[in-house]
């Protein structure tokens, strides 16, 4: 299976169990799905459904209790060792003592690349932070900090991009604007991407496939193809078809919650 040239993210019977104060908690149970290389996949589900854990396993930050994971035909740990992973967390995770430019260059230095001023400047421009190269995080707004985090994730030209509610802590307007920009940047690079989010609208707007998860222990309720073509713009958010699609996702989520309550 790892040999398929168009393989994107692939989970094969992945389970994850945590020990918590003596008890064991199953976060994910036998998750299997496959996506295409270069596609954008969103994972939605209620709090505690294990979606962030799934992403952390793809980032090689956690190991599965059972099952295997691949991205672009390689294991997460292989990709990480080659510096081919990019990640954005809900919080910007910037080093407060470094400037915007130095924070972005940090990703290059750590992965063993000499920072090229021009590339970094182009990225800073791309995420709309031109003129703030030498500012420190404390001088930036929340939205601007998150743009820095996005630029830092992209500067290494990763093969696999992992987004863990990247704009979840921002206000709705900023969030929409950043989503549009993210889509524009992503379309230019066609990186295999997985987004974890609470937001149905965000998932529907950004992705090719939405994976809907049940409450803990997390299982896949549905794998839904997003029926909208690309490129997409803000107009899509106002279309009736978009709202019908979002309602479908909501119904699957609600049915899953009702099942879980018994």
């Amino acid at each position: 299976m790892a040999a398929q040239p168009d393989a994107g993210i692939l989970l094969d019977g992945v389970s994850k169990t945590f020990g918590l104060r003596g008890a064991s908690v199953t976060a994910l149970e036998k998750i299997s799905f496959a996506t295409r290389r270069g596609s954008f996949t969103a994972v939605i589900g209620p709090s505690g459904c294990g979606k962030s854990t799934m992403l952390r396993m793809l980032a090689d930050l956690e190991a599965p209790t059972a099952g295997r994971l691949f991205a672009n035909g390689r294991t997460p740990s292989d990709l990480r060792r080659d510096g081919k992973l990019g990640i954005v967390f809900q919080e910007p995770a910037l080093l407060p003592w470094l400037t915007v430019r130095a924070n972005i260059d940090l990703a290059l230095r750590v992965t063993g690349t000499r920072p090229d001023g021009a590339d970094t400047d182009a990225l800073i421009d791309l995420v709309g932070l031109d003129g703030f190269q030498d500012a420190r995080p404390a001088e930036l707004s929340g939205g601007m900090r998150q743009r820095v985090a996005v630029a830092r994730a992209l500067v290494t030209a990763p093969e696999v991009l992992l987004l863990d509610e990247p704009f979840g802590a921002l206000d709705e307007l900023t969030r929409r604007r950043l989503n549009h920009e993210l889509l524009r940047i992503w379309a230019a690079q066609a990186t295999t991407t997985m987004l974890v989010t609470h937001s149905i609208e965000e998932a529907a707007f950004l992705s090719d496939t939405v994976i809907v998860m049940s409450p803990r222990p997390g299982r896949i309720l549905a794998e839904v193809e997003v029926p909208f073509g690309r490129p997409r713009d803000a107009g899509l958010l106002r279309e009736a078809a978009f709202h019908r699609f979002a309602d479908t996702l909501s119904e699957i989520l609600a049915a899953g919650e009702a099942d879980a309550r018994g």
């Binding site: 980032a59 090689d60 990480r80 992973l85 967390f89 809900q90 995770a93 080093l95 750590v110």
Partner: peptide, 20 residues
């Protein structure tokens, strides 16, 4: 989140110590 980020970028233990 910062140590996680550095780990995802394949930073070794010394780098995390020194940089973060």
């Amino acid at each position: 989140s910062i140590t996680d980020l550095l780990r995802v970028l394949n930073a070794d233990r010394w780098t995390i110590l020194w940089r973060a």
